[in-house]
Design a protein around this nucleic acid. Sequence first.
DNA 1: AAGGTCACCAACCGCTGTCTA
DNA 2: CTAGACAGCGGTTGGTGACCT
Length: 257
Amino acid sequence: MVKTSSFDTNNELKKGAWSEEEDQKLRAYIQRYGHWNWGLLPKFAGLSRSGKSCRLRWMNYLRPNIKHGNFTREEDDLIVHLHNTFGNKWSTIATKLPGRSDNEIKNRWNTHLKKRAKDDHMVLETDHHGTIQPADQDQANPNKNQELQLQNEGNMNLAVLSSHSPSCSTHTALSPGWLSGSDCGVTSNVASQTSDDFWTDTFLEDIITSSVDSMFSPLNAVDDLVTRCSYEDIMIDDQLSWSMLYSYNEYNDFINF
DNA sequence: AAGGTCACCAACCGCTGTCTA
DNA sequence: CTAGACAGCGGTTGGTGACCT
């Protein structure tokens, strides 16, 4: 199941399965410094891996709140539904399933759900001769369906934002990852997450853990980071309702800064 | 017990998009 | 405007365990 590790003799980069020690190194490094540059990160983290490999390992396995283990029936249904809408846009689909990576969803689809969807499609065709079924509609005009879906989701997220005012103490978020909308825990996908738990736990926890002392990397690029981060201190006050501060689009712009 | 095949999934590879100088 | 660097995405590969003959 797990690839055995090997060395690329050309550039002395390790390949294959990650060891527990490597995981610990990567996790510890990113938790402390964030991933300011995937290309240089392995060198500073003491890993003989490519930046790509580190990024993948982090995204698919090590990052906080990543879910492992069996997919629920609800998750499977959602994947099938979203695949009808978005096609093989795994990263898009992954934003709708908190805690699941695009890679995991892709594997799930390829190994389990593709066949199931195909079977379902055949049943639909058998039941409704001469009519265009959902799968056919999607394939005929996926962009239109995607637009509608995004519209609906925009409305849904607005509703969530309007109905949910996260309560927390006042925090100053200065993490480069946060400001750049990177995917270190807090992601640009935040706006599309609709889980109450996500907002109240994960989201705020990540803001808190992305504290000032974690923003410095050992690079001489600190100046650059400070420039980026000092653009504006972000104050989150529990006296303010976020729904009054940001509309959906404004919020998106905000987190993608 | 041994060999073959299949299913699963972590990880790799190559391409594309975005950003910056 | 262009080129290079980097991040991210999606397709594919390959190792391993489970199952079958």
